[in-house]
Amino acid sequence: MPTLVFDGIAYGMLLFILAVGLSVTLGLMNFINLAHGAFAMLGGYLTVAFTQRLGVPFVPAILLAFLATGLVGAVLERLLYRPMYQRSHLDQVLFSIGLVFMSVAATDWLVGSQQQNIHLPGWLQGRSEFGEGALGMGHYRLFIIAVCALLVLGLQAILSRTRFGARLRASVDDARVAAGLGIDVNRVFSLTFAVGSGLAGLGGALGAEVLGLDPSFPLKFLVYFLIVVAVGGTSSVTGPLLAALLLGLADVGGKYFIPKLGAFIVYALIIALLLWRPNGLFSRGGSGR
């Protein structure tokens, strides 16, 4: 049982890192970016390429994946995404789902449809058992939790302590007012988009071992990202974090206790949850109007 909770937390943490960028994008520009998972996939494949082709050690490789995906995000934001902010949600959905399909097909063409494996360094393999098997902690999952916890603390600190964080929060609250206060909302958004994409890439790099990595990744996990944002809301870091943890625990627990139904439990739970509170669990608006 404790093992289950541990695995669920690791999974939830991973989902948070993968989805937090999407939450900010949505909160900041009211932009529905269904292609967020494509950045995660890119991070995963880059890590595979760095470690296996170029012989880069694992930790520098995921850092490189973070930077490279962030860079790609910044470029795409400037070239493709920016004209889309003012468009209808339908246009945004068409645009970004199109991007997803292109990334899936292109990855399939470039590297093939087989699952990719990440070779973990020795110190991340194996697991420690405590209390006669009551709690088994995989070292890699422990590593994921540690990295994600650091990131959460870091993000929280950036948001609440720095000048950029204040600007970002002001822009999320009301972009028009923020622009009136002399904040360059466009630049805030570019930077946030790049960091959000980079985090997705990092999540993809970290998660390849746990979630699996093949060209259908952006489609397979799309609904999970959307759940984190829909349930967690876009007004804080803690909302999506709690939503992601909840989702991770529910998914791991559901698949363990009722393997026959698989992901069914999670979907049913989430739909019921959003029936109850259509604006998410942690939105400021309360139980909806």
């Binding site: 949505l26 529905i32 269904l34 949600h89 959905v93 799309l222 609904v223 959307l226 759940i227 944002v229 829909a230 979907y267 989430i270 739909i271 959003l274 259509p278 604006n279 998410g280 909806g288 109007r289």
Partner: peptide, 14 residues
């Protein structure tokens, strides 16, 4: 009830 995002998510999840 809910926003476009919630609708997209719920219909997809269904």
């Amino acid at each position: 009830r809910g926003s476009d995002l919630t609708r997209i998510m719920v219909t997809l999840a269904l």
